[in-house]
């Protein structure tokens, strides 16, 4: 009888430790590296902006916090050495709304070869639309 109690006690302790460990793991878990995730949608910059222009609420539901791959012509590459920021603006054909892609800081090097007017595919996490549709944590897919 006594042995049984001991077993239960050990099991309870094990579960408590496991739970605490799992909690600690969850707490310290870093945000996923978007570069290693597959994208959910692949579309052109003009289609993406078009979807947001048509119905922003629906587009928010569909794209925000999702990893997407966007194809478009580079209209600007902005490298800010003072802050380490690296940003690419993709032309959507709409003069009032482009796609702003904020890259991982350590991807800045890969942008040095990119030229204005070049067609590229950017993978990133969509955060919504201000004037432009914005992606963050971007990297070059193609």
């Amino acid at each position: 009888m006594k042995k049984q109690w001991k077993k239960i006690l050990y099991a309870a302790m094990l579960i408590t430790f496991a739970a605490a460990g799992y909690g600690f793991y969850l707490f310290n878990k870093k945000p996923a590296d978007i570069r290693t995730l597959p994208y959910k949608y692949e579309l052109t910059a003009s289609n993406l902006v078009g979807d947001f222009n048509k119905d922003e609420t629906a587009a928010d539901k569909k794209y925000v916090d999702k990893v997407i791959a966007v194809k478009g012509k580079v209209s600007e590459v902005k490298l800010e050495p003072s802050t380490g920021q690296a940003t690419v603006i993709l032309d959507s054909g709409d003069p009032l709304a482009a796609v702003t892609c904020s890259f991982y800081d350590d991807e800045a090097g890969s942008l040095k070869k990119i030229k204005q007017g070049e067609s590229i595919v950017v993978k990133g996490r969509c955060t919504g639309k201000l004037m432009d549709v914005v992606l963050n944590k971007c990297s070059i897919e193609k």
Partner: peptide, 28 residues
């Protein structure tokens, strides 16, 4: 890192806009 802002150098009018979902944290 994707905050839009505009200001008018004459009138001093100043505006900012950002997407709340665009904040990047160290822990998920």
């Amino acid at each position: 890192k994707s905050v839009t802002s505009i200001f008018d150098a004459t009138s001093g009018q100043y505006e900012f806009a950002l997407l709340v979902n665009g904040f990047e944290f160290k822990r998920s």
